[in-house]
C-alpha cells in the first residue's frame, strides 16, 4: 500500500504513520488507539480497525485472528445528548 494512503479518516493517519508507531513498539490495537486516537473518532474503528490489524499482522507475524481489535464500546452510532435525555424523561426522540 502507498505510504500516504489514509488509514484513519477521523484522526488523519496514513499507513506510514501507523507503521512508524508499530516500529516504536506500539504492537497492539489498544496501544495504537491510545497513543494516536486511531479508532477513537466518529467511525469508532469501523473504517480503520481492519486496516490496522492487517499492518499489525504483517509487522508481528501473528495471524489477524490472534490479534485483539480493542473494546467495542457503546453506542453503536453517535447520538445527540439531548436525544438520550429526552428519551430518559419519557419524550419521543427525533434525531
Amino acid at each position: 500500500m502507498d505510504d500516504n494512503a489514509i488509514v484513519c479518516r477521523c484522526s488523519d493517519l496514513t499507513v506510514k504513520d501507523v507503521r512508524n508507531l508499530i516500529a516504536k513498539g506500539f504492537t497492539t490495537f489498544d496501544e495504537l488507539k491510545r497513543i494516536s486516537r486511531i479508532g477513537m473518532g466518529p467511525c469508532q474503528g469501523r473504517t480503520c480497525a481492519q486496516l490496522v490489524l492487517r499492518e499489525l499482522s504483517i509487522a508481528t507475524g501473528k495471524q489477524i485472528s490472534e490479534l485483539k481489535p480493542g473494546t467495542y464500546r457503546p453506542p453503536v452510532k453517535g447520538i445527540k445528548l439531548g436525544a438520550i435525555c429526552e428519551c430518559s424523561t419519557g419524550g419521543e426522540v427525533h434525531d
Binding site: 473518532g41 453506542p75 453517535g78 445528548l81 430518559s88
Partner: peptide, 25 residues
C-alpha cells in the same frame, strides 16, 4: 449513567444537547 449524565449536563450547559455522544467507558 447516560440518562443521569445527559439530564444534568443539558440543564447546566444547554447547547450541548445538540452534540453527539461517541463513546462511553
Amino acid at each position: 449513567f447516560l440518562e443521569e449524565m445527559t439530564k444534568t449536563i443539558t440543564k447546566v450547559l444547554p447547547p450541548l444537547k445538540d452534540v453527539r455522544l461517541l463513546r462511553q467507558w
